[in-house]
Design a protein around this nucleic acid. Structure first.
Lengths: 142, 142
DNA sequence: TTTAATTTTAAAATCATTGTAATTTACATT
DNA sequence: AATGTAAATTACAATGATTTTAAAATTAAA
């Protein structure tokens, strides 16, 4: 579904349709990256010069509560937001902090969790922790 | 391996052995919980009244860099630290923020990732996102 | 035991995120 | 189309987790 469709659907739940929200959601749906709140802010600012970071966070939290967005948090940086989880996971280097994609079909497990937990599962996130090839070489952390 | 063993091993890599570090690592290894930095701080303070939060973070980052610790970050709360990943994953409610354990044997996938990525994989984290039973009932977010 | 380097401490600084108060907007109801 | 009102936006202040700093203390190693 596109941004307009999602926002129209949310209207039935009392969420107002604003042009700022449309711009934010459209960007989230069209981008392949996992932008930070600040990156979204700068992008939306091109269309709406007066938009504030507060509005970005407000909209992201609203979308998250309604299950249209995954928030990916790392320890030492801003959260990143994923409007459409793709077929990949992430590997994080515990030494240098680098994050690389690991392409692989998503593990088919959400239904199992839904059946056993009573949650309505919207998606999952999987992250591998390790030491990247460069750090292994350069700093012999093995 | 126990705290002393790990710290002795780290000594070969130029990491100094201090009693504060020993106390922090011992607590991480013995606890079943996933404590925040502040919880670790208060616990270690019982033995070392003069210890500072700065030392806690310093030690946690050191352990993380050397792969002896997983940092679990959520969007809206402090990071939690896991000294020995147990047989469970987490489910996070996108609406109310609650985190519950989902007990299940860990997926056997680290070796595959290690072979394909060149990273030395130390562990993984899996988190399910959804709407918890209470939020589904009370607020009809389906 | 001496020395140099690292760690600790305590306090200040940083930065992502949230809260606030005033203004504006969306939208249901006239 | 005009109006009322609740919700959203804006600009800015506040919060709180984490990092940095500088000086003092402690550690490892010669």
């Amino acid at each position: 579904m596109d941004a307009i469709g999602i926002l129209k659907q949310l209207k039935d739940k009392g969420v107002r349709f604003t042009p700022q929200r449309q711009a934010i959601l459209e960007f989230l749906l069209e981008t392949e990256s996992h932008p930070t709140a600040d990156e979204i802010y700068h992008h939306v600012k091109a269309k709406f010069p007066g938009v504030s970071l507060g509005t970005i966070y407000n909209t992201l939290n609203m979308l998250k509560e309604h299950g249209h967005l995954l928030e990916l948090s790392y320890g030492d940086m801003s959260s990143r937001f994923d409007g459409n989880p793709k077929n990949h996971y992430h590997i994080v280097c515990s030494h240098c902090g680098r994050v690389v994609d690991y392409h692989r079909p998503l593990i088919d497990i959400d239904q199992e969790v839904m059946d056993n937990s009573g949650f309505k599962i919207l998606g999952h996130r999987m992250e591998f922790y390790g030491i990247c090839p460069e750090c292994r070489k350069g700093e012999r952390l093995n």
